[in-house]
Design a protein around this nucleic acid. Structure first.
Lengths: 127, 127
DNA sequence: TCAATTGGTTTCCTAAAAGTAACTAGGTAT
DNA sequence: ATACCTAGTTACTTTTAGGAAACCAATTGA
């Protein structure tokens, strides 16, 4: 992981970030945090906008990182269940903290900029 | 912000994520957390690999979100100082927690996969 | 007169992330 | 015989993030 050399101390933060960024990972994780076990198709139904490809790839990355467990039942039609690992549950407090901070920040932003301008959202629009 | 409708409860997490993702934001934030005030050029020197364009855009987003303050001195050659806002300091615990978690996770990954395979790093290499 | 200074902006380009849609296996129900 | 089911994979396209390099303005110092 090349970014480890970037900063004196922030490579580790990137490690944490890498696990939860990816447009779909947070919502996948919250569903798994709330549900104990979910089949592939249940996740698909819970997150209708996600494609199979994305769901698969995000789950595989989470599996690689030992955050979720993948249980394959040898039967037809196939059945695969996903669940948080014991280790993965250690991520929960962080996720919850981030969500709380985000909730407060939304309010803060509305006070600052008003809730009208839904366009720019801080991405410094030009370029 | 379209993602607010994605999940019942994870849009807020995305809000938090949006602020700290971006290849350079964490390191910028850590420098500002440690330094009280830094000029644009000091940040450039502190993070040599970053381009002006990236530094500018990341700082602007942080400024929009009231995390950093931008102070312009009307003089030539220009002088601009960046610092964490009071509000921005509220982000520090989260950043520190994420870094800690990342540090531990690196160890965990090495136990699982060994420290040899530096290639894939969980991005599920095929496609 | 001309280079050096700072804090940018602008245009163009590449690489990575994400989306679309078609295809697959193998057993079951019609 | 054929359509349907699940949990994917594959090939291709679009979108977004990020990078390289040139340009700029106003003043100072040589």
């Amino acid at each position: 992981m090349a970014n480890l050399t970037v900063g004196e101390n922030c490579g580790e933060l990137q490690v944490a970030l890498d696990i939860i960024v990816g447009k779909w990972k947070p919502i996948i994780l919250f569903h798994l945090m709330e549900n104990e076990k979910l089949r592939f198709s249940e996740l698909q139904r819970a997150i209708p906008e996600i494609t199979k490809k994305m769901l698969t790839s995000q789950l595989r990355e989470l599996e690689y990182n030992d955050i979720v467990h993948r249980e394959v039942y040898q039967q037809v039609p196939p059945k695969v269940e996903y669940s948080m690992t014991e280790y993965g549950h250690g991520l929960t407090p962080l996720l919850v903290s981030m969500r709380s901070w985000g909730t407060e920040h939304l309010k803060h932003l509305k006070e600052l900029h008003g809730e009208d301008n839904e366009e720019q959202e801080g991405k410094a629009g030009s370029n």
